[in-house]
């Protein structure tokens, strides 16, 4: 049938209408940041994370997501696993001594994610660097 092509185009259009907005929601932190300087994060001067490094590498999101649920629903705030804590320790400075957002390109919370193609929406709400109000 000669209509097949046209129909696929139309279906594709509908799909765009449906899926488009979702992908548009991806991180929109449009701050242009200077590159962080190697060795300026607090973590760089320590030798252990809040859990063994191998564990963190694979399971850090479960850790924060668990933390997220117990903080919001049960009010538990005494912990090392807070997202604010991760950022506090892992954020780097630029050459001028200013914080560089942890989710800026190549920074700690973004380098691996870019590599594996994971996208997070956390930083549409959460601070990407310590703000001092905490």
């Amino acid at each position: 049938m000669k209509g097949k092509f046209g129909i696929s185009v139309l279906l594709a259009l509908c799909l765009v209408m449906f899926v488009g907005p979702g992908s548009a929601l991806a991180d929109e932190d449009d701050e242009v940041a200077a590159a962080g300087v190697e060795g300026t994060a607090r973590a760089d001067k320590l030798d252990a994370c809040v859990a063994p490094t191998a564990f963190m590498r694979r399971n850090h999101f479960e850790l924060i997501e668990h933390q997220r649920d117990i903080t919001v629903h049960e009010g538990i705030r005494k912990t090392d696993n807070s997202l604010a804590g991760c950022i506090d320790c892992h954020v780097r400075h630029d050459a001028a001594g200013q914080y560089v957002p942890v989710n800026a390109q190549g920074e700690f919370c973004s380098a691996c994610h870019e590599y594996v193609g994971a996208s997070l929406d956390c930083f549409t709400c959460h601070a990407t660097k310590p703000t001092g109000t905490e």
């Binding site: 139309l10 259009l13 509908c14 765009v16 209408m17 488009g20 907005p21 548009a24 929601l25 929109e28």
Partner: peptide, 17 residues
């Protein structure tokens, strides 16, 4: 019809963005 759908789609993208 597809043009109207597409307009709706763009309107949505705009609102979501």
């Amino acid at each position: 019809l597809a043009a109207i759908v597409a307009l709706g789609g763009f309107a949505t993208l705009y609102m979501e963005h």
